[in-house]
Simulated scan of single mutants.
Amino acid sequence: MTTEPAEAEAPEPADPAPEAVPDAATPEAPLADSAQPKPRRRGRTALIMAVAVVLGVLGGGGVGYAVQYHRQPTPLPPLSVAQPQYPTTHAAAPVLSPADDDMVRTDGDLTKLVVPAPKGSKAWDQPLGEGGWLTLSDLSENYTKPGVQFGWLLDHNFRRAAVNTWMEGTATYEVDLIQFDHAHEDSDQVFVTTQDSYAKADAGGSQYRTPIPGTDNGAVYAGPNQLHYSDGTPYYRAAVLAVHGDIALAIWVYSPTQVSSKSLMTLAQSQLERL
């Protein structure tokens, strides 16, 4: 018995090959030059407009300047405020004669400006100073604290001092002209102000201070207050304080009896008239 050969099974058709998927990481190939669009040039229009604006401004300015240049100037209205008037010439200050110029007198021999001793008076046995001049040390010795007074005068631009002394009866007189530097004339004011409190206390109070007519702060100090020397002997001390320019006037009177304010006023006025 013959056996029929089995039919060979037809092979299954193979799956179609998958379509090729382009790789995402791989850039696409560029198009050919003929296929790419040409880029458009930018900025040319803006540049043309900017140049036109600049030319317009320059042209307008030039035209405006030309028009203004040929235009007649407009006169300004007159000022309503009156202008200051100045003198055509300046008046010269009058020239003072040496007799009228205080500085000429006070810059000269100061000892000649001290009031002379009255007739009938006596000189001190030991006059102060030398030849009518007081040194800074001699002047300071007249005060209760010579060292302090020496330093004060030195710090306040002391220049020089002239003096005259005499005795009239039982009273002793001392007249000091104390001059300070011209640039520090206020020093004599400070000197008088400082001595004012002491002089009032010596006289017995401010009620015994009599202003000198014609002066800013000059005064006579004479009162009933009695002082005592170191040995207990009583005495009275009167004073005159005044200022003239850069000079301080100080008159000191020591007497066993009360000093007359009227006679001291006469002496003060006589001294100030010489300055």
Rank of each mutant, 00 (worst) to 15 (best):
P5H: 14
E12G: 11
P18A: 15
P18R: 04
A20P: 09
A24G: 03
A24L: 12
E28W: 07
S34W: 06
P39H: 13
L47W: 08
V54E: 01
L55I: 12
G59K: 02
G61H: 01
G62Q: 03
Y69A: 14
H70R: 13
R71E: 04
P78F: 14
A82Y: 02
P84W: 04
A92K: 13
A93G: 06
A93P: 00
L96P: 00
L96Y: 07
D107R: 13
D107S: 14
G108P: 07
T111G: 05
K112F: 12
G120A: 06
W124M: 15
W124F: 15
Q126V: 15
P127K: 06
E130C: 12
L134M: 12
T135L: 02
S137E: 14
L139G: 01
L139V: 05
F150C: 01
G151A: 14
L153R: 02
H156G: 06
N157P: 07
N157R: 13
F158V: 02
A162Q: 06
N164M: 09
N164F: 03
W166D: 01
M167V: 14
G169A: 01
A171Q: 00
A171H: 01
E174I: 13
L177Q: 05
D181S: 13
H182W: 08
Q189V: 14
Q189L: 08
V190Y: 10
F191V: 08
T194V: 11
Q195T: 08
D196I: 07
A199L: 03
S206H: 11
T210F: 09
I212T: 06
D216P: 02
N217Q: 14
Y221K: 01
Y221W: 05
A222K: 03
P224W: 03
A239W: 05
G245S: 06
D246W: 05
I247Q: 00
S255V: 03
S263P: 00
S263W: 04
L264P: 00
M265F: 10
T266A: 08
A268Q: 07
L272P: 00
R274K: 09
